[in-house]
Simulated scan of single mutants.
Amino acid sequence: MASTANKESCDYFVSLHMNSSTNKSAKECEVWVYDEKSKLYILSKSICSNLSKTINTPNRGVKISKDFSVLRKTKMSALLIEIDFISHSDVEASCKSSKYIKDIAGSISSTLLSFVNKSIADDGVFYRVCIGTFKDKSNTVKLKNEAISKCFKDTYIVTN
């Protein structure tokens, strides 16, 4: 992974992980950086704090490691996010929830964007795509089900 990022001349490298432990009660987020002088050290604190609040898990804070390959081998500033402990049964169950996944993605992405003085713009504009018109309702239902099977969950039938 580090070599790919180095070839692409990325500005930053962010590696996402779920931690695991033989201690099944472990439940905490943490972020790892190469050293305290990293440009991403302050960002890492914000990610930990925001993620901890968003998914209601304890904050283990920012940790230093020169052992992680993705931190040691990248030419750019890098961080490794341990979102929580997948070995905890509640966390494992939460991973099946799209809301939980969206909350994690939203927390991390908004914190990263804030770091580079950007934000997610929601102008309220939505676009719709119509993919077929049929006289026979069974053809409409078949196409709708096909779209849903391809992960287009917001699929519905409109009648005139």
Rank of each mutant, 00 (worst) to 15 (best):
I42T: 15
K75N: 15
L79K: 05
L43H: 00
C48S: 12
L79S: 09
G106P: 02
I42D: 15
A105V: 02
I104S: 01
S87M: 08
I104K: 05
G106C: 09
L43A: 05
D67I: 14
C95N: 08
S69E: 12
I104P: 00
K66A: 12
T57Y: 07
K96C: 10
Y100K: 09
N59R: 06
I104M: 09
K39E: 13
K96Q: 14
S89H: 08
K63M: 09
L43I: 02
K99G: 00
C48P: 08
S98H: 07
G61H: 08
N56R: 11
S89N: 10
K96R: 13
H88L: 02
C48Q: 06
K45Q: 14
C48L: 07
G61T: 07
K75R: 15
S69I: 05
I64W: 08
A78V: 12
K75G: 15
S69C: 12
E82Y: 02
C95H: 04
G106D: 13
R72V: 03
K63T: 01
E92V: 00
K99I: 14
L79P: 07
K96E: 09
S44Q: 04
T74S: 02
K73W: 01
Y41I: 10
K66P: 07
N56C: 10
D67Y: 14
V70G: 00
Y41V: 11
S77F: 09
A93M: 13
K96S: 14
E92Y: 11
P58A: 08
G61F: 07
N50L: 02
Y100P: 01
D67K: 14
G61L: 02
D67N: 13
K96N: 15
L51M: 06
R60L: 11
T74K: 04
K102C: 12
K73L: 15
Y41N: 09
I55R: 02
V70P: 04
L43W: 05
L79Q: 11
F68S: 05
I81A: 02
V91I: 02
Y41S: 10
S87V: 04
C48H: 03
